[in-house]
């Protein structure tokens, strides 16, 4: 018997053993009418953005607000502060970048990991942002690019549109497509492995900057 068939046979045999007497800890839950946890929020736009900003800041991301009119200035100011000159961008970023940066579009042939490590940063958009947890989610769409470009550079500037912001984790899951490679990002990389003291910045970008765009 193949390993596959044998493991599946074991599971079926185990299920028969367990079926006779449902233990208190093992009885399958009765079918319920639907989730009783929160799956939809009433929180309105400005409150959502405020919550997202405060939660992102809580985990040491830098956050700025912009309108369509001021977006270019915010991006330019952020990159200027960072003194970022060579920036990798996804193939269809469609954001105004300042003239002092050299934007390297991530198209074939792709930059090698070492090439990505040599740039000053990356600018992407996002797929969804979750206010309650301070999370932005990238799904590899043309405005976000390959997973590697938002991973290897030490600086990540992410532009999030107000319409992409949801309140709750289940709302984000419902919006996302499983078919795409997803990266959920909540603040810069961090570790608590030494005496459970949180330290920002290990292997992923050590600086995460988010521009929230509304109006």
């Amino acid at each position: 018997m193949s390993a596959r068939d044998e493991v599946l046979a074991r599971i079926r045999a185990a299920a028969r053993t367990g079926a006779g007497k449902a233990g208190t800890a093992s009885s399958p839950a009765a079918p319920s009418p639907g989730p009783r946890y929160r799956t939809r929020s009433e929180l309105a736009g400005p409150q959502l953005l405020e919550l997202l900003a405060s939660r992102l800041t809580d985990y040491r991301a830098l956050v700025h607000f912009a309108s369509a009119a001021t977006l270019a200035d915010e991006i330019g100011a952020a990159l200027q502060r960072r003194q970022a000159r060579r920036i990798v961008v996804p193939p269809a970023l469609r954001l105004p970048l300042p003239s002092f940066v050299t934007a390297i579009s991530d198209t074939r042939p792709f930059l090698s990991p070492a090439g990505l490590a040599a740039v000053d940063g990356v600018v992407t958009r996002a797929a969804v942002a979750i206010a309650e947890t301070g999370t932005i989610v990238l799904d590899g769409s043309p405005g976000q690019g390959r997973r590697a470009i938002s991973l290897v550079p030490d600086y990540h500037l992410c532009v999030v549109d107000a319409g992409q912001v949801v309140h709750l984790v289940p709302e984000a899951v419902a919006r996302l497509s499983a078919g795409r490679p997803l990266t959920w990002i909540s603040g810069p990389s961090a570790t608590s492995d030494i005496e459970l003291e949180r330290v920002e910045g290990v292997h992923g970008p050590r600086t995460l900057e988010v521009v929230l765009v509304s109006g």
Partner: peptide, 11 residues
Amino acid sequence: ERMNPYTSMWT
């Protein structure tokens, strides 16, 4: 934490 810094999903 409210959310861990990184979660990766691939299909």
